[in-house]
Write a protein that binds this DNA or RNA. Structure first.
Lengths: 183, 183
DNA sequence: TTGAAAAACGGAGGCTACCTCCGTATAGTA
DNA sequence: TACTATACGGAGGTAGCCTCCGTTTTTCAA
């Protein structure tokens, strides 16, 4: 891939993320190209169908979430790493609401994609949570996948408000940590 | 409402049902008008937004389902009435798959609609199932709403095949009926 | 460093679907 | 029957999707 192509690819994914977040997954391709500062031709060469763009944004988001997990484990103590990761997960999941339909369509068309990315997220969660469990900071009777299963649907539900998510995550974190544990 | 307007309204809802079933909820308005044998102007006067048409089709389907329940109770013995109604429910729910996204959008915009129609369905189910329970044909430890809750998601799941739904409904019916009951 | 091939860019333009508008047709009514 | 309110239909304006191709940029061998 040529350097300028790579540059434009990244610009397009970034622009698509912003535009989809602001206008929903139905936003016009022209708007994405404009935001990225490239022509529509360039957009369509990289992403022939709208769904390819949605998918690229989503994969990019998942990758970032996984990196957040790695960074949290490398830089933070076990419990703060869990807090940081789950906050990132909530942010990640909530942005999906603006293009849930498009995402579902992408998953319908390619079920393997859904599975693969879900595994990737579950592994990252397990990395952070398992470490905290071994350190005695998190109760042992939960698994990483339980948490994403709990938070994912909560965050993508269209009726969840910003305030609710801000109130609920701390509550979930309190329930998650080993009892009597401090700070 | 003038007679010709009423006629065209009905033709449009019928055409929309067929076209949505065949091409999905994203089918073109022109295609619906053509199928109904009217001009697009007529379509848009009756249904200013696509969502209004989706909603009309859905309400019509629910109405038909409720009528099926009434007819089953009037014309059939308790158990056969349950069979007939649940088969109709499966048919009803499966047709929704082709325009689930549009339906969700309609519900997001008007949550009361969802509630109202759900209640209507639950009442119809209760009518048929309650009668069969009182007649001793159906086990007493289930409610009408449990059944729709079980069948609805099953039928609208995009991964359910025709064959599966044909195999599963009899199984569910077997589990539903009072043990030792015949015919 | 240079020049030519390969790769990528951009946006004009064709296509299709959405929706409005208004002249024409028709049902209902006295 | 004649009149009016109502409804019909589809031409045409608008907008978004996508393709195509002349132009620009990058790469790389000499």
């Amino acid at each position: 891939m040529r350097a300028d192509a790579r540059r434009n690819y990244d610009k397009l994914v970034g622009a698509a993320r912003e535009v989809f977040a602001a206008e929903g997954g139905g936003a016009s391709m022209e708007a994405v190209a404009r935001k990225a500062g490239v022509g529509v031709g360039t957009l369509y060469r990289h992403f022939p169908r709208r769904i390819d763009l949605v998918q690229a944004v989503y994969e990019d988001d998942v990758e970032e979430l996984v990196e957040t997990a790695d960074r949290a484990v490398a830089e933070l103590e076990p419990w703060p790493a869990v807090v940081a990761f789950l906050e990132a997960f909530v942010r990640y999941a909530r942005t999906k609401r603006t293009f849930l339909n498009e995402l579902r369509e992408a998953f319908d068309k390619d079920p393997a994609l859904k599975l693969r990315l879900r595994e990737r997220i579950d592994e990252a969660t397990e990395l952070v949570v398992g470490r905290a469990q071994r350190a005695g900071a998190v109760r042992p009777d939960v698994e990483g996948a339980d948490l994403t299963q709990l938070l994912g649907p909560m965050c993508t539900s269209p009726t969840l408000t910003d305030e609710q998510s801000v109130r609920l995550l701390p509550m979930i974190l309190d329930g998650l940590r080993t009892r009597g544990d401090v700070g």
